[in-house]
């Protein structure tokens, strides 16, 4: 009974929403034109790709808080994960191991490329970090990398380092008038610094979300 009611309600909601969106699409375009504002300020953003400019400059504050979300979730994972007795690496398939040994160096190369490409085409720190994290998970699944124990200081510094670099840059720029207020001439270099730091930390965090629990 409850089940049927929820399904009917959900279907009705989807229908109403689609009708409302069709009605919206018949209206003229909104007066606020953010794509034009983004295009007009691209020169001062320090990068050439509009999505990267929005992510790290125009709405860089969102990105700062987003990294805080990842870091805090990692803390919870560490807090609830078993404290010792990590299982040994899972598989010993020779084929998988050979594949992993070939793939991982290519993945590292791809991560560096993605980081560098972010300035002028799709790419950037998160994508690069995701590839790094995936490489670590692949090594674990192939039986070449054991699960991680509770992090020591060095590891913790690696996990939080990217966020701290971002935070220090954001607050240092208060001297320039506002939080994350990049001076146009240094914006490109500072964004690259932040993205490089984030790539390493995001790779470790994403790998850690898997390997601290392994």
């Amino acid at each position: 009974m409850k089940r049927a009611a929820i399904i009917i309600f959900a279907a009705l909601f989807a229908f109403v929403l689609i009708v409302a969106m069709l009605e919206l699409s018949a209206l003229p375009s909104p007066k606020v034109n953010l794509p034009a504002a983004v295009a007009a300020n691209m020169a001062a953003s320090g990068v050439e790709h509009p999505v990267t400019a929005v992510l790290l400059n125009f709405r860089g504050y969102d990105t700062l808080l987003e990294i805080a979300v990842l870091l805090l979730v990692l803390l919870v994972v560490l807090a609830v994960s078993p404290r010792e007795g990590k299982a040994p690496a899972a598989s010993h398939e020779p084929v998988l191991q050979v594949l992993a040994r070939v793939a991982v160096p290519v993945m590292l190369l791809a991560a560096v490329y993605l980081l560098w490409a972010g300035a002028h085409r799709p790419g950037g720190a998160f994508q690069a970090g995701a590839v790094l994290g995936a490489a670590a998970v692949l090594l674990h699944l192939a039986g070449l990398l054991p699960g991680w124990n509770a992090p020591r200081l060095f590891m913790r510094a690696g996990l939080a380092g990217g966020f701290l670099v971002f935070l220090v840059v954001a607050s240092a720029l208060l001297a320039n008038g506002a939080l994350l207020h990049f001076p146009p001439e240094f914006a490109g270099a500072l964004i690259l610094l932040i993205e490089a730091g984030l790539t390493v930390s995001l790779g470790l965090i994403l790998a850690g979300l898997f390997l601290f629990l392994a």
Partner: peptide, 30 residues
């Protein structure tokens, strides 16, 4: 809907994806 690409929602979605990855990881860990 005007056929032009708007980078602002794309950046928002990237942020949203990271947040939902984090939430998923938390849910899985628990």
């Amino acid at each position: 809907r005007a056929g032009l690409v708007d980078p602002v929602p794309q950046a928002m979605v990237l942020t949203g994806i990271v947040v939902s990855v984090a939430a998923t990881a938390l849910a899985l860990a628990l």
